[in-house]
């Protein structure tokens, strides 16, 4: 089964956040009560009710140069997902076509997955104390031959859904020198086509499972078996 992907092109993004809303609409996620904290960016963080969000990055120099970048934050659907690796109860799995799915019935709310995630993406319900919730690639839409809600709604095609290989090829054809996510972590399912260093977009450089998490995870697994990861949260 060919791996699915989302191609994100921040140079096309207009920061409208239709992706945030379409995701809520499709997934039936309630709104959060927010306040303006001196920025247009809102809500301030991902949550069990917010699977993707746009970060607003203002960059100005001392001259007249000003830039305003809009960058999506969401589960990257890693090729080698650390969350799948550490989950003690196999509540997180990776489908054949590369979607990192989760089973909320199996989830025991140990929160090891967030600690392990190189991007610290998973969030939990019950005010952050409960079970996992995150982007699931609009899994059921994909299975029904539909485009994920965020990609479908994007006014400028800054989010494009397709086969991952084809999307990478496509962005190279468009001349993007940087394909963030092409190689990282076994290749990310969410790839960014960039014309600059990913640092400019505040994307993690060389993302990896935190070393201490990897250490404890391996150790606990070796000593206590896979379910040892349950204890991971007490060590990290």
């Amino acid at each position: 089964m060919a791996r699915v992907g989302l191609l994100l092109r921040p140079d096309l993004c207009i920061g409208c956040r239709a992706c945030q809303v379409a995701c809520k609409q499709w997934n039936g996620l309630p709104a959060e009560k927010t306040r303006n904290t001196g920025t247009h960016e809102n809500p301030p963080d991902l949550s069990a009710n917010l699977f993707n969000r746009i970060k607003f990055i203002e960059i100005s120099d001392n001259g007249h140069g000003i830039r305003w970048l809009f960058v999506s934050q969401r589960c990257m659907h890693c090729g080698e997902p650390a969350c799948v690796e550490v989950c003690p109860v196999k509540a997180i799995t990776r489908t054949e076509d590369g979607i990192v799915l989760y089973d909320r019935e199996k989830c025991i709310a140990c929160h090891a997955c967030k600690e392990a995630c190189p991007f610290r993406i998973p969030r939990y319900d019950q005010g952050g104390k409960g079970k996992i919730a995150k982007c699931h690639f609009c899994f059921e839409r994909i299975r029904a031959g539909l485009t994920p809600a965020c990609a479908k709604t994007c006014p400028t095609d800054a989010i494009k859904f397709g086969k991952r290989d084809e999307l990478i090829l496509y962005s190279k054809k468009l001349g993007y020198p940087v394909i963030y996510g092409e190689k990282e972590l076994g290749g990310l399912g969410v790839i960014f086509a960039l014309r600059e260093d990913p640092k400019v977009y505040r994307l993690a450089e060389n993302p990896q499972m935190p070393a201490h998490v990897a250490f404890w995870s391996t150790l606990l697994k070796l000593t206590l078996g896979k379910r040892g990861s349950k204890l991971l949260r007490y060590f990290v």
Partner: peptide, 12 residues
Amino acid sequence: MDWLRELQPQIF
């Protein structure tokens, strides 16, 4: 509409 108010809750 709560989803929109979530994005821009207050006058700035």
